[in-house]
Amino acid sequence: MSSLIDNAVALHRDTEAEVPLAIPVEPDEASITAAIAEQICQARQSVDICFAEHTTRARRVIEILRARNETVRVRIARSEPGRHRVPEHWEDLAASEHIELRIARVPLIDCVIVDGRSAVLIADSALGPQASLTRSDGVADALHALFAAVWCSATPVPVRIDWDGHARATFVKQVLGCLNSGMTDEQAADELSVSMRTYRRHVARIMATLGANSRFQAGLRAAELGLLPSPVPRAAPPES
């Protein structure tokens, strides 16, 4: 029995040694997209995806996900919420039962992890995109653990927020701006030319829509989702 176990362990080690840590992918978008598509099509349980920002590559990957007939769990994390709004069709994607979208608080690199066992990593550089495919258990496990850590601290993207028209959306932004600036309810109501009761009612509705339990949490969610109005620079005081 002991020799049988030793032989099995040795065989496993030999198999691991034959698996390269990374296989280079041709450095062009078509080849990279094809490598990602192949991995996604082979998924049986899960697909975990990181995007640094919304790019043509990201749109193509989303199209691949939409074309899948099988249902696997898909988690997509995207960074840079302060610089880019969440595209509307990403919010539509969030309506899918098996797809979750979150906005990460940290910078990310483009990466697709399939079943926690293989991954495609892409890094953009001045020389163009550089990509590698890995099926190494050690590398895949490390990437999967890193994704899990990012995912836990990321903010869920809700199904598209409907503010009931442009005028309503504009007013919501003004209310969020008042909350973000630290105004009292009385000051905010005066700023928006509404009664304090009306202002508080709007604040309560916004909190409910954002799924926030406090005004502070509502402010954080609004900032992470890019809903806050752009700050208006204050004019310099006149010279005396």
Rank of each mutant, 00 (worst) to 15 (best):
H12G: 01
A95T: 15
V112W: 07
P238S: 09
E18F: 06
S181G: 12
W163S: 08
T33R: 15
M183D: 14
A8Y: 03
P238G: 00
R85L: 11
P24S: 08
A235M: 10
I64F: 07
I49S: 01
E18A: 15
P27N: 15
R102H: 04
Q217F: 04
I103W: 08
A17H: 15
T134F: 12
A94R: 10
A67D: 14
I40H: 03
V139N: 02
A10D: 03
A34H: 09
T155M: 13
D124H: 14
M207R: 15
P238R: 10
I99R: 13
L228S: 01
P156T: 03
E70H: 15
R105K: 12
L93D: 02
M207D: 03
C111I: 11
S3I: 06
A145N: 11
T56E: 12
D137A: 14
A126Q: 15
L179P: 02
L101H: 07
P229S: 06
S153A: 02
A43F: 01
A235D: 10
T33C: 10
H89S: 07
I103Y: 01
G177P: 03
A126Y: 11
V150Y: 08
D124P: 00
V9I: 14
C111W: 06
H166V: 13
L220A: 06
V25A: 05
I122C: 06
T15G: 05
S2A: 06
H12S: 09
R215H: 04
A43L: 00
D185Y: 11
D92T: 08
R85S: 07
A167N: 07
T56I: 08
V120P: 10
R75W: 05
Q42R: 14
L210E: 10
A145T: 11
L228A: 02
V175Y: 07
R60A: 12
R68W: 01
L65F: 08
I62Y: 10
R73D: 01
L179Y: 06
S3A: 09
D185S: 14
M207E: 10
L225E: 00
H54M: 05
P229Q: 03
S3V: 09
A77G: 13
L225N: 10
L179H: 03
A77I: 07
Q174P: 00
M1C: 02
H98V: 00
H98A: 00
G219H: 04
E70Y: 06
Y199G: 08
E26M: 10
K173C: 05
L133D: 03
